[in-house]
Computed example of a mutant assay.
Amino acid sequence: MTSLATSVDQVAESTGFSGVVRVDVGDEVVLERAYGLADRARGIPMAPDTRIGVASGGKTFTALAVLRLVEEGALSLDTRARDLLGADLPLIDDGVTVEHLLSHRSGIGDYLDEDEIEDGTDYLMAVPVHRLDSAGSYLEVLDGYPQRFPPGTGFVYCNGAYCVLAILAERASGTTYHDLVRTQVLQRAGLTRTDFLRSDELPGDAAWGYLRTDGLRTNVLHLPVVGGGDGGIFTTAGDVAALWAALDAGRVVSCETYTDMVRPRSEAQADGRTYGLGFWLRDDWVSASGYDAGASFRSMHRPGLTWSVLSNTTEGTWAMAPPLEELLVGNEAAR
C-alpha cells in the first residue's frame, strides 16, 4: 500500500485536503492518514480519531434506527406517516409510508431542496439554527411544502423525509430520536466515538466545519445546532469502519434486514448509483455519503474492503474520493 499512501498524500497536498482518509482490507487497517487542522484558530491538527461531522451520512444512522423499530414491531415499512403525524404537516399525502420516506420515494416537498442550491455554503436555515435541537423542533421547518408527486411514483432525494422519519421514530418508540440512535445503533455497533454534538460547544476532540479551504469562518450559522434525522452526526473513520463490520455481522439489524436495506428501490442515477433504504448502491458497493456547509463525507464498503473520507470542509471529500476510489478499484492487492 506504499504507492496508495503516496498517491493519497499527493492529492491531499495538491488540494489542501483537511480531514481523515482510511482504508480497511479485511481486519487490517492498511491506510489511515489525517491532514489539515481540526481547529484553525488554535492550530490544532487533525488526528486519525478526530470526530468529524458527516452531514447526510447521518441518514444511514436514522435508517438503521427505524429498521430496528421495524424489527421490534413498533413500526412497519407499510406504516403510514399520517397515522403518527396526526394533524401535523397536513400537506404530506396520506398515502406516504415509512418505506417511501426511507427510499426517497415519498414525493413530499423538501425544506432543503438540493437541486435549487448552487452552493451549500450560501444556504441558511429558515429558522434560527439554535432552535433546531430535537426531532420535534423541525416541524416548523418542514411545514408548508406541498406534495411534489404521488408517493411511490418516483425517486427524488429528500432531506425532509428523514426529518419526518425521526419524528415518526420518536412517536412510535416513546424515546427521543437522539437516544434511539444511541441505544439502537451506536451501542449495538460498539461505536464509542460517534454522537450528536452541539456545534456551539464542540469538545476538543471534534473538528470545526469550515466553509472554505482556507479562512476561519465556520459553519455554525448554516446548520442545526444539533444534527437531526437528515444528518449532522459526528463520527470518526474508525467508527465508520466498525459500523460496516457490525452490519456485516448482523449486530445492528439482522442480516436479513440489512440485505433488504441494500436492495435497490430506485432507478439508476446519472453516476450509476441506485438507492436502497438509507444506503447508496453501485455494483457490489454499498455506500453512505454526505455534503453540507463545512462537511463532506463518503464511505464505500463491500465485504473485505472499506474506504472512507471524512472532511471538515464543504468540498474536501470530492477532491479526495474519486482518485482514491480509482486507485482501490484498480489495485488487486486491496481486494
Rank of each mutant, 00 (worst) to 15 (best):
S3P: 09
L4N: 11
S14C: 09
S14Q: 15
G16H: 10
V23C: 12
D24V: 14
V25G: 09
D27V: 05
E32A: 15
G36R: 06
L37Q: 14
G43R: 05
P45D: 11
G58V: 13
A65K: 09
E72G: 03
S76T: 15
L85A: 04
P90T: 06
T97G: 02
L101M: 06
S103A: 15
G107V: 01
L112T: 00
E118K: 07
D119S: 12
G120E: 00
G120V: 03
D133I: 06
A135V: 04
G136Y: 03
L139A: 00
G144Q: 10
P146R: 05
R148M: 13
G154H: 13
C158L: 13
G160P: 03
A161E: 03
Y162F: 15
R171D: 15
G174F: 08
D195F: 07
F196E: 07
R198N: 13
E201N: 04
V220I: 14
H222A: 04
A237N: 06
D239L: 08
L243Y: 08
L243A: 04
V252H: 10
T257A: 14
Y258E: 06
D260V: 04
R265C: 11
L277F: 09
F279W: 03
W280D: 10
D284R: 09
G290Y: 08
F297N: 03
R298Q: 07
P323Q: 02
A333D: 07
A334Q: 00
